[in-house]
Amino acid sequence: MAQATGIVTITPGQSARAAPEPSGWRAWLRQPGVLTALPMALLMLTGFVAPLLLVVAFAFMPPQSFSILQPPTLANFQEIFANSFYRSFLASLYLAAATTLICMVVCYPVAYAMVRVFGRVAGVLALLITAPLFVADNLRLVGWMLFLVKGGVLSGALQAWFGIATDSMLYTVSATLFGLVYTYLPFMLFPMIMGIAMVPLEMREAAFDLGATRWQVLKEVDIPLAMPGILIGALMTFILAAGALSEPRILGGSSVVMIAQDIQNEFTFAQNWPKGSALSVLMILVAGVLAVTLLRRIDLDGIFGRR
């Protein structure tokens, strides 16, 4: 009967011939999670980690060389620290910080309105803000160049309609900053929308019920609770802006040299891959430290509803 019901009973003294439980790394490797993660892990290793390792390896190769099979040296880093490359780093960090700050100030009211005010129109607005992202940023920036150049759309219109003569608005640090804000604004806006959407309305109502002013609600409830989204947006905007290449070139006329331009120069015209790699490693370190510091303050599990 026991067999008919499919139940096997083992009486004391009988020994079941079960296979021994695998232990250690073999058991770990057999976990379904590990197995399913393997393809992605391999892809990340070959497509993401390996190129980074190659860049790191090149950073320690002799200047002007094209192989990683040479005795390592610190010559590239020494040359970078002995020269004025700190200016490019500072310019990048300064412009990225300014871009992030401006984007924050511009985006917060827009994001708030899209979550709390516009209702269904918010979707259309989101589409309009996203649409330019489908066009390469180089093309969009050339469009702005034609808009801002002397005799272009803006100065031509001012001259024709109001008789105001203006010079070119291009090739300045301000033009570079404008380009950065324009290009990276959506990267601040959408995480910010996500952050603001996370703020429970009940919390705001409770704050008002307890006599809080609008300013206090903004300061004590809205911004702190939306902070994960704001920080993610700030991080993305800052890192992307710090690595910008086209904006200082097309709108800035190289009035300020950002670090990405120096890196590109080393890889192309200078024929110095090791120095370009060393600059890249330093930039990755700066961005990495910043990312780790900020991400420690963000509760990603909370954002994605796992807690």
């Binding site: 160049m145 150049v149 005799g151 070119s168 070139r249 097309i250 190289s254 009035s255």
Partner: peptide, 19 residues
């Protein structure tokens, strides 16, 4: 220099508009 550019058309535009 007024500006530095790798775009010959941007430079030509500067000459054409008198910058």
């Amino acid at each position: 220099a007024a500006f530095v550019s790798d775009d010959m058309n941007a430079i030509a535009l500067g000459v054409i508009n008198g910058s």
